[in-house]
Design a protein around this nucleic acid. Structure first.
Lengths: 129, 129
DNA sequence: ACGCACATACGAAACTCTTCGTTGACATCG
DNA sequence: CGATGTCAACGAAGAGTTTCGTATGTGCGT
């Protein structure tokens, strides 16, 4: 009867989560102002989304003040990893390695990025021994 | 007036594309039998999905035979790369490198997989010079 | 020619997502 | 006090997704 696996956020929800991760706990107004910089999203649209996200358990709401304060329930990295696991499952036959290799192939990464990845590989290999 | 960017396939559509990539050009029956091995999807459901996917341009239909033959319009790798680009855009601030590193962190990959990735890095580095 | 098997097409139902208008609560300012 | 501004809540509309029942067409065997 505990909480079930969090649902995969939709595109709009992900945009809102992005703001929450960046700003920390925020009011609807905060989120709306941030999102409206380069889009056209109505205030009540953001509010409704946040209400739905609360029901889904994607965000947590603090109602102690008049303007409710929302924050993401799951960390950015955790959510990202969840999305990657999902995508690997749905489109890469469950293989995260295939996903990584495909992501690398389709890019012209610069040297420093490649080095960062290489170092990460070293770390991982060290741990697995 | 040329073809617009292909839409992101939904989960169900991706499942069908998976079958088409695996089997090559297939009839509805083919796809349905494959999918129904471990799910419960009606025949007409698969048919309807394929019809919609044809409208969207995700698959191409050959109507020269009584049983129409469908094939994916875009290759598996191209679609995978598109999905990764999308996800990087939506959830990783547009950085494919961040995506790769997060995908690597969340895994315990075995040595041979890590080596394969390392070799790929070598190849990429060689090309970028 | 009749009926069966198999195929596509169509449309509707149930559900989700996204958007926004409207309402009502509440505080503050003049 | 009364007008104004800010806020949450609600409901509904429109689009997309997924499912499937039913209708219709067509070829084949007997």
């Amino acid at each position: 009867m505990s909480d079930r696996q969090p649902p995969r956020p939709t595109d709009s929800e992900l945009a809102i989560l992005g703001v929450l991760w960046e700003r920390g706990p925020s009011t609807v107004r905060d989120v709306h102002e941030q999102l409206n910089k380069d889009g056209t999203t109505g205030y009540t649209t953001v509010l409704k989304l946040l209400q739905i996200m609360t029901e889904k358990g994607l965000v947590v709401r603090d109602e102690s003040e008049r303007a409710h304060v929302y924050q993401s329930r799951y960390g950015e990295q955790k959510t990202q990893r969840q999305l990657l696991t999902d995508l690997a499952e749905r489109a890469f036959g469950g293989s995260a390695t295939k996903l990584v290799m495909q992501a690398l192939s389709g890019r012209k990464a610069n040297a420093s990025e490649l080095n960062a990845i290489r170092e990460l590989l070293d770390t991982l290999e060290g741990e697995s021994r």
